[in-house]
Write a protein that binds this DNA or RNA. Structure first.
Lengths: 207, 207
DNA sequence: GTCTATAGTTGGATAGAC
DNA sequence: GTCTATCCAACTATAGAC
């Protein structure tokens, strides 16, 4: 249609690819279907992207950043650490629940990336990003609650990511929302138990 | 080649499909590649299976039953529940570690099944099977340790499955074995904490 | 920058000889 | 039961007109 600058055209195509992939799976996101979704011809996609893998790499970036944005840092400023974690995980869960296709696509992208060297980075970046965000949330929650973690925050962040992914995968299969929430709440307890009240004074004041 | 009865031929083809899929991913397991792997011609596969989906359904069954067999119930007969769970998870983890391709294929099968109504059952059965086995192991461990679970075993089994899947997915991406083991050990603590000594007397003997 | 047309592969499925 | 030959659909990618 209209003549757009390359950057905008790429953005449009990436979002078209994302829409198709969320709706019908990553295998359905062919160059042809993406072109059709965006309302452009096949040649345009090949003009804007080196090849299909480059397009998928961009889709991976968008999915990853959306995962991060969804957490939205609406962490309640409560001194009750368990409540704060529960609320944070609840927020994450609501986002997953309302974006089933995106969550499934996220897993599809990971497995695809693990088989395709050209896409390997997509899986790595996604995991790293998720872990990083979890770490920030955990750190922030501890600060607000006046506690400190008894094991490295990084390890706890990994636990959170694994728990969320594991619960999400099961939920995609059995659609048991109540069980998913219960599982996340249980994991939240586990994480919260790895904290103790922070020493509010200086390090040498204990006695 | 030789003229095999249908059942054996099917078995041979399913295992050929499994080999290809483990090695190169589910998308590589085309009817043609499977036929080549088994050393038969294209027509034979179509003669033995209704269509590709039926072949993949059989692959799903085999993968699922292998997951179960791998646990092997080598649960140590120790009264230390935490140690028993740690050993069980350790065993599961060794199996996953030594079968990276199979673990990845397991996830690929799940996502594929979630997009394809013809394969939907593969995902359901796999999750159900895993949960069932976890439940049996947890029950058995509690018996040996002389404890009882304070929450429904079914819920704990779901936690185990989610934890294992989440940890396995992360490991497939970052290959950090030590972190994976640490995460599983942490989750084992969490599960073990959901137990209390069983009342050895009758139900009415409590004071 | 966008389009049509087409080359070149690959895949699922079937027909029919043996 | 097994094979070869073939059909047809869909895909990635490119060439070249506009």
């Amino acid at each position: 249609m209209s003549r757009l600058p390359m950057a905008e055209r790429r953005d449009q195509l990436v979002h078209a690819a994302l829409a198709v992939a969320i709706r019908e799976g990553i295998d359905a996101a062919t160059v042809r279907r993406v072109a059709a979704e965006a309302g452009v011809s096949l040649g345009v996609v090949h003009y804007c992207f080196e090849d299909k893998d480059e397009l998928l790499r961009e889709v991976g970036k968008v999915i990853t950043s959306q995962n991060v944005e969804r957490v939205a840092f609406d962490l309640p400023a409560t001194p009750d650490l368990r409540a704060a974690l529960g609320a944070a995980l609840g927020g994450v869960w609501d986002a997953i629940r309302e974006n089933r296709g995106a969550q499934l696509l996220s897993f599809e992208l990971t497995t695809t990336a693990l088989r395709n060297p050209e896409l390997r980075g997509v899986a790595t970046v996604q995991l790293e990003h998720d872990t990083e965000v979890s770490e920030q949330v955990l750190t922030q929650a501890a600060e607000v609650a006046g506690t400190r973690w008894t094991v490295p925050v990084r390890e706890l962040a990994r636990l959170c990511v694994a728990a969320i992914n594991g619960v999400a995968l099961a939920w995609l299969v059995d659609e048991d929302d109540a069980a998913a929430r219960a599982a996340l709440a249980s994991f939240a307890d586990h994480i919260a138990a790895r904290s103790v009240p922070a020493e509010v004074g200086s390090r040498v004041s204990a006695g």
